[in-house]
Design a protein around this nucleic acid. Structure first.
Lengths: 345, 345
DNA sequence: CAGCCGTTGTACATCGATGTAAAAACTCCG
DNA sequence: CGGAGTTTTTACATCGATGTACAACGGCTG
């Protein structure tokens, strides 16, 4: 009982294979009679399209590869959820890869995993450099998220990270905080999110006439709660007394808050904490977390939009337009971790 | 400049197409000479396998479809992350779908999305019934996660949910709690996770000679923190005074704890809270969350194991063995939300 | 009713990689 | 050096769906 093929359906309905194909693909000029006859044959046999055959013939897979560092970091999970939903709306299916911070995996992703699996690629890079993005013959259309690798190498969607960090810092400064630390530097990576956000932080300080010291950037191993907690522990054990923390994602912030709690420091009274990403955990934590909320829906929507355009261009063998840069909105959600007792956003 | 094909590589290397194919697939009997010659040609042309062609010929796609309710619920994100990693170890790629609780989507998944995309399917069902799983001619090999739909319809991996709930309840009872509520019932679903866990809860009560009342099961819309908070709010506003909450996942528990906090109730002194899943949020929350921790690595590993066996059977046209049932380990991690001040697990 | 046109339906080649079967090349030994 | 036995390579058919090009059909006009 092998699966039925178009051939079987055709025989059963008494038409040609192409006619069956036409019915399946809603081709206009099929009479109502034959259309129903074919539909019936399909139902009776339980026929389902073989996508391998279709892909081979059409030259498109209908698959988008999404590459994120780790899916179990809530921000990426949120993003993936939205992208999958958005892709579906574009009749695309999403295949997810994790780089687990591995540079080789990111490069492999860029190359299309040594194959041409996907029609397009959405990539949230951590370690890639500008040069990695040049000259990728045969690589699929690509949209980068988040980090501004270097302008002009590929389509890119992100919030204005520098401005966001500046606003967050201004917020802390307005609360009178002067000993602010930034949590989330990475070792040995190219200028990435951390550096851009650091620059925003610095700009805010300098605009306020305050000095800036590169040492305020605390390094972390990863972007999980544990890393935030460890960073704060090291800081406090070194005898420092911060009164504000700008954490480069919410997980770091939540870990930091837990560590502060354990050491008897109150948030926000002793230390005000700001995060990035607006994940669910920060909305229900005690205290709830002030955060820079990117418009994630927009990120997903715009990413798909850019990608679908590129894919269409490629199909049409149109000359590729220059890389497109898209900035999506963000806003600072002020919650208890900086505002004192307040309501949940 | 179209992408090179095997034909082009063959011409360049001065060998047949099949020889190129043999080199690509590490076929044993290729001399070192030709092997290197072919490799060079591949590099020079930048050749990469066209998977559509390969899939068509091989009859396998190398893709596993993972279907979860929502990827932005941390437990499912954790699981997806592990499954993707595990799949990679089996040279498989994972395509993720979300049902968003939609029964039709779950059914579509069962049918292989109207196509035969994936070699196999890993499905975490919410609304499926036993009958849905019968008679799925042509459907791909399937492994179910979590909910015991009804034994004997498909391969299945889960913890012993009833025992887990019993243990968690016993833990609450040992703390002297007597007014325990279970948070996480769903409307109108088949006997699923909630019912199985409820049964465990009931068993623990009855073993202790305590009465059980179906009304202890609080309904929720979804499994997010917000739903836990709302459930607790309704409960308290109805004038009830619970001293223990058994939440059917950590998100519900975290939301519940936040609501308790807002209403001036202390955890664990006034209300002890237990969750399920052991997600990161519960390890760093204040207080940290006691939870039933399933061995998620094992879930992922066993799921892939079962699936790969089924796929191999199918390829070999072996008669399908009867459905396999696999139980993975869990343990109760006691943290501050029930234990009083303690250390973080 | 011939002639034309638009609509339906068909035969066949094709997308790219690989399994099959068999030919070619090479080894080794008497 | 001939021939059996083994290793390496090849030609060709095939996986399933669909685009191309064209044939068949039906209806309408003059």
């Amino acid at each position: 009982m092998a699966r039925p093929r178009i051939k079987d359906v055709a025989r059963r309905a008494g038409v040609s294979e192409k006619t069956v194909s036409n019915v399946i693909n809603d081709y206009a000029h099929v009479s109502e009679r034959t259309r129903t006859a074919v539909r019936e044959a399909i139902d009776e046999l339980g026929y389902r399209v073989n996508l391998a055959g279709r892909h081979l013939r059409r030259g498109r897979t209908g698959i988008i590869a999404l590459v994120v560092p780790e899916l179990d970091i809530p921000y990426f999970a949120d993003l993936a959820a939205l992208i999958i939903t958005e892709a579906e709306r574009n009749a695309m299916t999403v295949l997810v890869h994790q780089t687990r911070e591995d540079r080789r995996r990111e490069l492999a992703a860029l190359e299309g995993f040594g194959s041409d699996f996907a029609d397009g690629l959405i990539l949230s890079p951590l370690t890639l450099t500008g040069t990695d993005l040049r000259d990728r013959p045969g690589a699929p259309p690509t949209v980068l998220l988040g980090e501004r690798v270097r302008p002009g190498q590929a389509d890119h969607v992100a919030i204005d990270n520098e401005r966001a960090a500046r606003e967050a810092t201004v917020h802390l400064l307005e609360l009178g905080r002067r000993r602010i630390r930034v949590v989330g530097g990475r070792e040995g990576t190219e200028p990435g999110t951390a550096e851009v956000r650091s620059a925003g932080h610095r700009a805010a300080l300098e605009a306020a006439g305050l000095p800036w010291d590169p040492a305020v950037l605390l390094r972390v191993e990863n972007f999980r709660a544990l890393d935030g907690a460890l960073a704060v522990r090291r800081l406090l054990e070194a005898g420092e007394q911060p009164d504000g923390l700008l954490c480069l994602n919410d997980q770091l912030a939540l870990g930091a808050m837990r560590e502060l709690h354990d050491r008897g420091l109150r948030v926000p009274e002793d230390v005000a904490v700001v995060g990035f990403d607006d994940v669910e955990g920060g909305r229900f934590s005690v205290p709830s977390l002030t955060t820079v909320a990117p418009d994630k829906h927009a990120v997903a929507r715009v990413a798909l939009e850019l990608l679908m355009v590129r894919i269409a261009e490629r199909d049409a063998r149109t000359a590729g337009a220059p890389p497109r840069e898209r900035v999506v909105a963000h806003r600072l959600l002020v919650r208890e971790s900086t505002a004192g007792a307040g309501s949940r956003a």
